[in-house]
Computed example of a mutant assay.
Amino acid sequence: MYPVQELHEFLLEKAAQLTEEWYDSLDKSGPHGVYAATDSNAVELLKKQNYEFHLQFCQLFVQEESTFLSGFENWIIQIAKDEQHLSTPIHFIVREFFRTRDQYLHFIKEFVFSNKEKYSQEFIDLWNKKVINTIDKVVIWFMEEHHEFSVKRLQCQQEMINELSSPVITLNRHTGLLPLVGDIDTARAKLILEKTLKQCSEKRVDCLLIDLSGVIMIDTMVAQQLFHLVEALALIGVKTTLSGIRPEIAQTAVQLGLDFDQIIITSTLSRAIDSSKIG
């Protein structure tokens, strides 16, 4: 049997041991993430993922690199998009890759020790180098995939936040309320304009109350976008009332020379509702 095949079989036999020793020595003290899981099902899944890593990684010694990496792709993508791993700080995950690398270096040493004088230092150096270089490639590959899925996850979350952050709430048959809360940047302001026009048209709103009491600060571009919203609403026949404008926002609007003549303004939302005669 060739040396690499003997090493391959030796490591495959140690795969379950590698997983158990890895998990036993795992730092589980983190406040969150996949390594802090205490649920038995989550722990078993984590061990299963680690064990599958070993089954795949052992092929390193008997396959061409291109074939090995192609076979490894599914494992990397599955772990990179795993919700628990996406919720884990990336440096924790990288740390575990390097701890696993050290496990392999240790077991190669054990394999050589159990076969004294059978393998030259040249073989040992070659195997160690192969493990180190491959783990480096796997870590970089994993981080790229993890980053891509993290970005997609954040984009989906942001889209959901945007979807929920500018709802036109129907108060009665023809009156709606748009409560704006939090920071509004230019991108969100444009989204609010688009969604508000669409919702007012779909809900047949004739009068829209826009409450700004939850908005702490807006810049000049956002202020312009909000007043463009009022103008656009007027073009589709929607009468607008603004309420809860903070002094900072009022100052910005005045500095821009924005025209308030065609806009009803009240100090509070309750007054806006009263002025709209909503019963």
Rank of each mutant, 00 (worst) to 15 (best):
K47N: 01
L26P: 05
G237T: 03
Q5M: 13
F111I: 08
K239D: 11
D24Q: 11
D102Q: 09
L154S: 10
Q251I: 11
V222R: 01
A232E: 00
L86E: 02
L177C: 00
V94R: 07
V168P: 00
K129F: 09
E52V: 14
I249E: 01
V131L: 04
L209S: 03
F113S: 15
E64D: 12
E13N: 12
T240W: 05
G237C: 04
I90N: 03
G237N: 01
I76V: 10
A15S: 14
M160C: 11
K129Y: 08
V139H: 03
H174F: 15
H8M: 04
C200L: 02
F113Y: 13
K277F: 09
Y119D: 00
S275D: 12
I161V: 07
Q262M: 08
K47P: 06
V4I: 15
F10P: 04
I236E: 00
L212N: 00
T240N: 02
V168K: 01
D185A: 07
D82C: 09
P247D: 04
F98V: 15
L212G: 01
A223R: 03
K47W: 05
E44Q: 11
P89G: 09
R101K: 13
Y119H: 03
N50M: 06
D206P: 08
S276D: 07
E117V: 14
L126S: 09
